[in-house]
Design a protein around this nucleic acid. Structure first.
Lengths: 336, 336
DNA sequence: GGGTTTTCATTAATCGTTTAATTTTTACAT
DNA sequence: ATGTAAAAATTAAACGATTAATGAAAACCC
């Protein structure tokens, strides 16, 4: 029994050599046939492909990677998986990468710069072809950490690396314009951590416009979460403003929740605008008016830029900025 | 100029051979020293390590992988990144994997079984050491798709593969008990897609208890989303029940939203219980009472089981089931 | 038919590690 | 000293692919 040659494959992995032998061609021909690279006769190619199929051959990408120096692998580093904005972004990045045949290592760094460095190192050792990086915070010299693995940074400002941004300042202005247009005159701003330029820009954009066309009721900072700090809560309770611009949706949702809990009605007593357009914004009560960034396009651009840079490292270092847009939902209304 | 040997590293990657040469030892000794494997004298080891450090040596994990057959890499396959429950899970899985020195490929399959197969193949080709898999749906024979790459399935029922579950039936019962204990007598059930055992069990558990201790007002199915189908909306509007068990939080949140929109007050007019304890459940208005699964522990168990199986394939195929727990928030109240 | 080009196949080197097998050195007991 | 065992270091063969260089065969042109 068991003199059937096809049965041999039981235990050991099928290698290219096996395919070549079974197809009675050289190793090189087999490789060329499977990769479609060299010049191979049509019949030979077909034959090799069929044999590979029947033998259940699978490329060993580790071997291939060693030889070619390409792993067909990208890294994605995010500060925090709990923030839904990053999830949306991750989804887009992964979708785009997959479309180009890449597999993606994902890591969140829990907002910790030490973990961030670890993550970068781990990925570089693994030999990723490129990295999409959403740093914990702005950095002067990020290039030092990537040891010339092609990298694209999203949202943050990092020296020495190509960047993809949205026009945060314009977004903040858009939000303020909306509130002023609704007739609000006392408008408050609640920002997240000011350590990143992205946040500073959002608020600066809003504040500049408010100061010009209305009164800035307050300008407070809080953590990046829907649990607000006490001075922020107080400002809301005391109705110092009839409208609030929050530097992030998560914060905006916190504002709505706290206001509601205090017996204020949103939007009748208080209008709220957020920033990011995270999925939760749609299903909160009331749904949150917010500023949207073209996440899918930003991710696509990041991947494109990365692939360009992988193909030829000598790319000019660019910074691409995308437009933002106002999405009006039910958390804002006219002030009477 | 430039006769400084340390300057040579400018362009080319530093390899183990370079380290060995610089340290004036054999390749093997260098390898042993760095991996701490063979027997190497204390001074030699220290010396090699220092040289490696100064030269900026980084292991080429592709090469190592080829030689050892281990990539130090895991795969995580999820049906849908938009569902926050999966995110929580992904986070836990990644955290646990990272703690063991593994890098994780993540993919979502957008609920599509073809993409799921692609993802599996892609990862297997990449040579992952193991896969944590949350299949789109139950399967008779999943082992056929993994070509003996160690795999652990979460939540779904898949033939031929080790599984990690929660006790869904008991969870459903817990929810029903809670509502009955609050005095509700007409209780409705809104389930998600019944194609997966997990969902069937949740509802079966709830229904069994309701039928015994109260009246089952209705039992409807809807898509896995907070956009409810019209027959479900109607059932809510017509107040056929004073309490509803939703098979998933996402659905429960949809129920709250629709009820509120129809002028019903949750929980005064309608009590709602969900299942999953996704993060949104905490910040909805009102916060959602729900059934929680020990996600972190489940993820840890999945990784543990996987690593055991990687170390020795001849593991008994187990199915581990975790307890669920009721989390009471403000979406349920006593029925008067 | 002879020379030239084009097309198809093959040989063999190479990528950067690990590790079994072997040799050299050191340590220890007699 | 000498023999033996233990420890340390080395040699060289893999791992599974890619690809430059080379050779053989076929096709073409006068």
């Amino acid at each position: 029994m068991s003199n059937d040659p096809a049965e041999v494959k039981s235990t050991k992995r099928v290698t290219l050599k096996d395919v070549a032998k079974a197809a009675e061609v050289s190793l090189a021909s087999a490789s060329y046939a499977i990769n479609g690279t060299g010049s191979v006769g049509e019949q030979v190619r077909a034959h090799v492909l069929k044999i590979a199929e029947t033998l259940g051959y699978r490329q060993n990408l580790s071997a291939r990677a060693m030889r070619t120096g390409r792993t067909g692998t990208l890294g994605l580093i995010l500060p925090d998986f709990a923030n839904p904005f990053f999830i949306t972004l991750a989804q887009s990045v992964m979708r785009n990468a997959r479309a180009q045949g890449y597999c993606v290592f994902v890591t969140d760094t829990e907002g910790d710069q030490k973990q961030e460095r670890n993550a970068l190192n781990l990925m570089i050792e693994r030999g990723v072809d490129g990295i999409v990086w959403f740093p914990v915070r702005d950095l002067d010299n990020g290039a030092a950490l990537t040891s010339d693995t092609p990298t694209v940074v999203i949202d943050r400002t990092v020296g020495g690396i190509e960047q993809v941004h949205a026009d945060y300042r314009a977004g903040g202005r858009l939000a303020a314009e909306h509130l002023v247009a609704l007739g609000h005159t006392r408008i408050g701003v609640i920002s997240g951590p000011m350590s990143v330029l992205s946040m500073r820009e959002r608020c600066a954009g809003a504040i500049a416009y408010i100061e010009q066309h209305a009164e800035l009721a307050f300008n407070l900072a809080t953590a990046f979460s829907y649990d607000l700090e006490s001075n922020v809560c107080k400002a809301i309770e005391q109705r110092e403003a009839t409208a609030i611009f929050a530097g992030a949706d998560l914060i905006g949702l916190g504002v709505i929740q706290h206001a509601t809990r205090c017996g204020l009605s949103v939007p009748d007593d208080l209008s709220v605008v957020g920033f990011d357009d995270i999925p939760w914004a749609q299903i909160s009560t009331p749904p949150l008016t917010t500023i949207e960034m073209p996440v899918e396009e930003m991710a696509a651009e990041a991947i494109d830029a990365l692939l360009r840079r992988i193909d030829s490292r000598a790319q000019p270092r660019r910074k691409v900025v995308f437009e933002t847009a106002l999405i009006v939902r039910q958390s804002t209304s006219r002030y009477l």
